[in-house]
């Protein structure tokens, strides 16, 4: 006598995946833009849940703190500062962007299908020899193995940040002269 045909991990996966998908759809379709931003947060949370299922706790925690703690907060903040009327009453029209979006979605789904079909063994449970996700291991791989890449990335980010600051500064000065 069998109650369920699925393991606990599979049930949890299906639940989280469903929540993530529904949240993603709401995030795109919500009329009230704040609700949309909020469900974006729920979606990120769901993805973090998936990471935890894959034993990637460290990644999951960063997913939450960066995407929810920073990105969603920024989006919400921006939405709330901008007057509400701007967001409302956008009639639906088939524009080139919409067509391009649909095409991109088809291509994405297609490529995922190809990937799925071309991958032989596919399982939801963690692999036999789990990768060492401990913090020490991550630190070593970041600082030692990919040290130079990290440095270059940091430099690029820094340059980008400085550029943004310079641009902002210039605009401010222009406003002052006006």
């Amino acid at each position: 006598m069998q109650i369920s045909y699925l393991s606990t991990a599979e049930i949890v996966f299906i639940l989280i995946a469903a929540v993530t998908l529904i949240a993603a759809i709401i995030a795109l379709e919500a009329k009230e833009i704040v609700h949309g931003a909020l469900s974006l947060g729920v979606m990120f949370l769901g993805i973090a849940g998936l990471y935890i299922l894959l034993d990637a706790n460290y990644l999951a925690m960063f997913q939450i703190s960066v995407y929810i703690g920073a990105v969603v907060v920024l989006i919400l903040f921006t939405i709330m500062i901008v007057p509400r009327e701007i967001w409302l009453h956008r009639p639906f029209r088939i524009t080139p962007e919409v067509i391009a979006g649909i095409l991109a979605a088809i291509m994405l789904i297609g490529s995922i299908c190809v990937l799925y079909l071309s991958t032989p063994a596919w399982s939801l449970t963690p692999s036999e020899a789990p990768f060492d996700w401990s913090v020490r291991r991550i630190a070593q791989s970041i600082v030692i193995e990919y040290g130079i890449a990290l440095q270059i990335l940091a430099l690029v980010l820094f340059a980008g940040l400085m550029g943004a600051l310079t641009l902002a500064k210039v605009e401010e000065k222009e406003e002052e002269t006006k």
Binding site: L38, A48, M61, I64, S65, I68, G69, V73
Partner: peptide, 22 residues
């Protein structure tokens, strides 16, 4: 007894301001 317990608490802390704002 989470191996990333400290990170977990920070991740949760990061979600509080959203709720206050909401």
């Amino acid at each position: 007894n989470l191996d990333v317990g400290l990170l977990f608490t920070f991740a949760i802390l990061a979600m509080f301001p959203i709720l206050a704002l909401l």
